[in-house]
Amino acid sequence: MKAVRLHEYHRQPTIEQVPDPEIAGPFDVIVKIGGAGVCRTDLHIIEEQWRDKSGVTLPYTIGHENAGWVHAVGSAVSNVAPGDTVILHPTPTCGLCRACRAGDDMHCADNAFPGIDSDGGMAEYLKTSARACIKLDPSTRPEDVAALADAGITAYHAVRKAAASLPPGTTCVVNGAGGLGHVGIQSLAALTATRIVVVDRKSEALKLAEQLGAHETVQADGSHVDAVLDLTGGQGAEVVLDFVAEQGAQQDAFAMTRRGGSHFVIGYGSNIDIPTIDIISTERNVIGNLVGTYNDLVELMVLAEAGQVTLHTKQYPLDAALDALADLDAGVVSGRAILVP
């Protein structure tokens, strides 16, 4: 089969032929990929940012946002069968550790993250686990939903956590309306009655945000922190969801958060430098956010299949994977790039 393989950090992957995956264990599932999302994390992987975190051995296949059709199953698999349309939770899990038992399965003590620390789905086939498979309506097109498997649940998970702090009368700032942010806007609209203020550098991203439910939009032109403070009576927002978290956006996000508010760090790439006195004197929270749980993805797919959350995508054939990565790096992808084998 064809696969997008990383052989060396700081060099582009190659598209090459590798052996098809095979069933080896009773809960194994092989999925014929119908759509694989292209994520900024893939760029960070190439840039070596994940080397020490993942411990992966090169070469390997990247791609961690995957959907398709079940191709083959192990002897103990009962929840899906060949031919089923599925989206894959990004972390196949053990189901036995304390985190899994608590429903916190993205923190499984024995998980693997295809595309980050094991072979991923930028390929024609992917081997995963029955525990990662969520069965979808047969009419669902994998290429339309694949990026919900990571970008989607990452945004949804943050909104799900923040929702308790966002009753009517509050304000939530969405910092960055790109691949994750545009899902975050829709999730906020579905789960809360908060006022949604979206900040982005790009006019086209702000126009999309308005279409998706933003009540106010602010151009990130250097005066955006003051603009948000003006919109909130000088107080700042109860919650800021930072989908950028690099190139200074992470500092702006904290500055837009009100006293007692919460700054959710979802994007990554730069450090946050906050004087401790600014944290304790205002009791502001800085909260990390890692993908989401299996149940988060189940809930998100209910919204997606009801048309309440949609992905804005640009599709590329698998052979054009390097073009998709380059376009993402250049900032010319609106929404999410999807590889279709």
Results as ranks from 00 to 15, higher is better:
Val340Ser: 07
Thr154Arg: 11
Ala109Phe: 11
Val70Met: 08
Gly83Asn: 03
His7Lys: 11
Thr257Leu: 01
Tyr9Asn: 07
His71Thr: 04
Val340Gln: 06
Thr282Ser: 15
Ala109Ile: 07
Glu47Phe: 04
Ala321Trp: 05
Asp329Ala: 15
Lys314Leu: 10
Ala67Ser: 14
Asp327Met: 02
Leu43Thr: 06
Gly307Tyr: 01
Arg51Phe: 03
Asn79Gly: 03
Arg5Glu: 12
Gly120Arg: 10
Ala149His: 12
Ala227Tyr: 08
Ala36Met: 03
Leu325Asn: 00
Phe113Val: 15
Ala99Gly: 00
His157Leu: 02
Pro82Cys: 05
Glu305Ala: 11
Glu124Met: 03
Gln17His: 09
Tyr316Lys: 05
Val333Asp: 10
Phe113Ile: 15
Tyr156Arg: 11
Gly335Leu: 12
Ala112His: 12
Glu8His: 09
Gly181Thr: 05
Gly35Val: 06
Gly176Asp: 02
Ser223Met: 13
Asp273Lys: 09
Ala189Asp: 11
Ser270Ile: 08
Thr93Ile: 09
Thr171Ile: 08
Gly121Met: 06
Pro19Tyr: 07
Ala304Phe: 07
Pro168Thr: 10
Leu241Asp: 02
Phe264Asp: 05
Gln219Ser: 14
Glu216Gly: 01
Ala337Pro: 05
His215Phe: 05
Gly233Tyr: 00
Gly83Trp: 00
Ala306Lys: 07
His10Pro: 02
Ala214His: 14
Asp278Gln: 10
Met106Ala: 13
Pro90Cys: 12
Leu241Ile: 08
Ala130Leu: 02
Glu8Arg: 12
Phe264His: 07
Leu300Thr: 00
Pro167Trp: 06
Leu188Met: 10
Pro168Tyr: 13
Leu58Gln: 12
Ile45Pro: 04
Gly115Leu: 00
Gly37Thr: 08
Ala205Met: 10
Cys39Gln: 11
Arg201Asn: 10
Val4Tyr: 00
Gly74Lys: 03
Leu303Cys: 08
Val265Pro: 06
Ala245Tyr: 03
Arg258Lys: 03
Leu241Cys: 07
Ala149Pro: 10
Ala36Ser: 14
Ala245Arg: 02
Ala149Ser: 15
Arg51Pro: 01
His89Met: 09
Gly233Glu: 13
Ile279Val: 15
Leu300Phe: 06
Asp278Phe: 01
Ser129Lys: 14
Pro341Tyr: 03
Ala237Thr: 01
Glu8Tyr: 01
Glu305Gly: 04
